[in-house]
Computed example of a mutant assay.
Amino acid sequence: MLLGPLVPDRVCGDCTVCCTVLTVNSPDFAKPGGVPCQHLTERGCGIHAVRPTICRTWFCAWRRVAELPDAARPDRSGLLVSMNFVDRPANLFEGVSILVRLLPGSDAIRSGLAARLLDTLCAQLVPVWFSDGAEKMLMHPPADVAQLVLSGEPAPGHLAEEVAAWRERYAVFADGSPPATG
């Protein structure tokens, strides 16, 4: 619930982006990413009334973050924003984060929608990643803060409080050693 409860009056409607883009590997259902769900029909989910638990409980950020504009619905924006959970993260910013995926054919970068959406999402103490399908880039925290958090080096005075907050919040995803303070 890091992104909050569902926003009233926001429904998926005919958006089925998650049914194609996401990798699903849950106890009651699995499908590879980038492949339409076997239950997806021209009118949406063919088993909606009895769909698996993961499909009943997973919602994109557009459904949960009131500050995102209506234009940010994935099928309209070309951006799928979701919480990302990684069992064995490469670094502490990957364990629990927000992932903004640019969908093929999207003009969200050119239109400026991607930048506006990232500005909204980067206002919290939650890592934000952006993926264009080929590359995944850390957008938040800023590079200087991220480098200090990961390196354990002492932070300069103007960054000390922010670096300490990130280290404290995400220490559980560190390599097993206690987080450095600075």
Rank of each mutant, 00 (worst) to 15 (best):
8 P>F: 09
8 P>E: 07
10 R>W: 06
13 G>R: 04
14 D>G: 07
16 T>K: 08
17 V>E: 04
18 C>K: 07
18 C>P: 04
28 D>F: 04
30 A>P: 01
31 K>C: 00
31 K>H: 03
32 P>T: 13
36 P>D: 07
38 Q>A: 09
41 T>F: 04
42 E>S: 14
45 C>M: 06
51 R>K: 15
53 T>H: 07
53 T>M: 11
54 I>L: 13
63 R>E: 15
64 R>A: 00
66 A>E: 15
66 A>K: 11
67 E>S: 04
68 L>R: 02
68 L>W: 00
70 D>S: 08
70 D>F: 11
70 D>P: 12
71 A>H: 00
71 A>L: 07
71 A>P: 05
71 A>V: 05
74 P>M: 05
74 P>G: 06
75 D>I: 13
76 R>N: 15
76 R>P: 03
78 G>W: 00
80 L>G: 03
82 S>P: 11
83 M>Y: 12
84 N>S: 11
84 N>F: 11
86 V>W: 03
89 P>N: 03
92 L>E: 04
93 F>N: 00
93 F>P: 01
94 E>C: 09
97 S>Q: 07
100 V>N: 01
101 R>I: 12
103 L>N: 06
110 R>G: 10
110 R>C: 08
113 L>S: 02
114 A>M: 02
115 A>D: 14
115 A>Q: 13
121 L>N: 05
122 C>Y: 02
127 P>L: 08
131 S>H: 02
132 D>S: 02
136 K>G: 06
139 M>H: 14
143 A>M: 04
146 A>V: 14
147 Q>F: 14
150 L>R: 02
152 G>P: 11
152 G>W: 00
153 E>I: 15
158 H>S: 06
158 H>I: 12
160 A>T: 13
168 E>H: 15
169 R>D: 08
171 A>F: 05
172 V>D: 11
177 S>Y: 12
182 G>P: 03
